[in-house]
């Protein structure tokens, strides 16, 4: 490193030359959503089991209950976020053609984001009685 430019701080030279990724952010969010899902997934399976054999009206009523609606939305957001992060790593590891890799990453992000929006919208619609 020859930082001979008297007008530029050393930070200017370091910037943009470090990790090309985003450091530990991905790892940490993957763990945070994992811990959330440890609880929320058990809740979700318990909700499904409790609705086994239920008719349409009682399934609607169950999802519309505020307690269930809030936890369902939390589950959906954590699940699609965690899923996107995991699929991102799988693609980074196994898809080596740059164009195909970027295409896959975009598809995974768009699909996970849209699915999260759509399912949260469905729960809100049930909960708010539209």
């Amino acid at each position: 490193m020859n930082n001979i430019d008297p007008l530029r701080a050393p930070l200017k030279n370091a910037r943009g030359l470090g990790s090309a990724k985003d450091g530990t952010r991905h790892f940490i969010i993957q763990r945070i959503t994992a811990v959330a899902l440890l609880v929320l997934a058990v809740y979700f399976v318990a909700l499904l089991v409790s609705l086994a054999g239920a008719d349409y009206a009682s399934a609607r009523a169950a999802v519309a209950r505020p307690f269930n609606a809030i936890l369902l939305i939390a589950f959906l957001i954590a699940m699609f976020w965690h899923g996107q992060l995991g699929m991102q790593v799988v693609i980074e590891d196994y898809v080596h053609a740059p164009g195909l890799a970027i295409t896959c990453q975009l598809i995974v992000r768009f699909v996970c984001f849209l699915a999260a929006l759509a399912s949260v919208f469905a729960v809100l619609r049930l909960a708010l009685g539209a």
Binding site: Y56, R60, V63, L76, V111, A116, A122
Partner: peptide, 11 residues
């Protein structure tokens, strides 16, 4: 994705 589809159907 199936969970999302099922919730949309329920709604």
């Amino acid at each position: 994705l199936l969970v999302a589809a099922a919730l949309l159907a329920l709604a």
